[in-house]
Design a protein around this nucleic acid. Structure first.
Length: 323
DNA sequence: TTTGCATGCAAAG
DNA sequence: TTTGCCTGCAAAC
């Protein structure tokens, strides 16, 4: 489920808690046993995110490549350091979830004091913090494809669409196929690459934004929201979108991704007035311009938001404002 | 309690 | 073009 922002946050978590440590790598589920054996015991030297892909480098030159797909997730546990921005995750801090577990910050939570402490951190489309159980290492929950375990930290991967060991050459080839990522590539160079490709394609701009070889990290939510923010017709062929509008799309993606990485949320209504913005943040269902709002009135003009299936994914837009 | 959908992608057919 | 991934959630019973 995560779009690009989540993967950058996951890489950040690995960098903070796994880099420099030897890692016991296993596959409790069994489906990744052979790959795990290739990595087991080696030191994690680098965590890197490009678009929706995560790359973990080990000290013998092999890498683990992970793509979460639509419902993959990493569970972190142990002495996990958590940056302050996570305290705003999902607006759920201090609330209680359906299992009755307290989610998020309280007085002496680990991220509001300096020192890391035993917690459990789940990172997927939403991020939660739960009190950790006493057992160490924790019992695997569900089908854990791969577990990375140091003396103090544990990361479990479940439900990924891709999880494989790669050589550096394979990593380079994978990354070479990806369009620019604002968190990785120089912003100006990324803008040129993106603009050049879009301006020569007959493909609807809505499909180009989801094409990871054109631009990295955009998923269905950011796609719909970027197009609305640009007031752009989703069906307009890329080459018929004015150059300045294409450049504007890239710059807005740079902007939204940065916010997403910092907050852990897909905030797309930051240009709203402060009161309306606060309301949007408070409710989970009320935080987007058009995404998942079929039939509801456009926040700008009142026209019912339209939805159709395009390339196998749902596309949301305002037929009046987006021309 | 059950059902169906979802912020993707790759492999199978 | 369809299926697998086999999770998490909310709406529908």
């Amino acid at each position: 489920m995560p779009e690009g922002h989540s993967v950058h946050r996951i890489a950040r978590q690995f960098a903070a808690n796994f880099e420099g440590s030897p890692v016991a790598v296993s596959s409790p589920q069994g489906r990744f046993a052979a790959g795990a054996a290739q990595l087991d015991g080696h030191e994690l030297v680098q965590a890197k995110a490009v678009g929706k892909q995560l790359f973990l480098e080990f000290d013998h030159g092999l890498w683990l490549r992970v793509h979460l797909g639509i419902y993959g997730a990493w569970d972190f546990a142990g002495d996990i350091s958590v940056d302050d921005t996570l305290a705003s995750a999902g607006g759920r801090i201090g609330q209680t979830n359906q299992r009755g577990t307290v989610v998020g910050a309280h007085e002496d939570s680990p991220w509001s004091i300096g020192a890391p402490r035993r917690t459990r951190l789940r990172m997927a489309e939403s991020e939660k913090l739960e009190p950790e159980l006493e057992t160490w290492p924790p019992e695997p929950v569900g089908a854990v494809r791969v577990r990375l375990l140091t003396e103090t930290a544990c990361a479990d991967l479940r439900g990924p669409t891709a999880c494989e060991v790669q050589t550096i050459e394979e990593v380079d080839r994978t990354i070479a196929k990806l369009g620019p990522d604002p968190m990785v590539d120089d912003a100006a160079a990324g803008e040129e690459r993106f603009t050049a490709v879009v301006r020569r394609k007959p493909t609807p701009i809505a499909l180009l934004l989801m094409d990871q070889s054109v631009v990295s990290g955009i998923g269905n939510v950011y796609r719909a929201e970027l197009l609305f923010r640009a007031r752009l017709d989703p069906f307009r062929p890329g080459r018929e979108v004015p150059e300045e509008v294409v450049r504007g799309l890239w710059r807005d993606w740079v902007h939204l991704l940065r916010i997403g990485v910092e907050t852990g949320q897909m905030l797309t209504m930051d240009d709203l007035d402060p009161d309306a913005y606060a309301r949007a943040l408070a409710s989970r269902d009320d935080r987007h311009w058009v995404y998942h709002r079929t039939g509801e009135p456009c926040r700008v003009c009142g026209t019912p938001i339209a939805m159709t299936e395009l390339g196998g994914r749902k596309l949301y837009w305002c037929p009046t404002d987006q021309v």
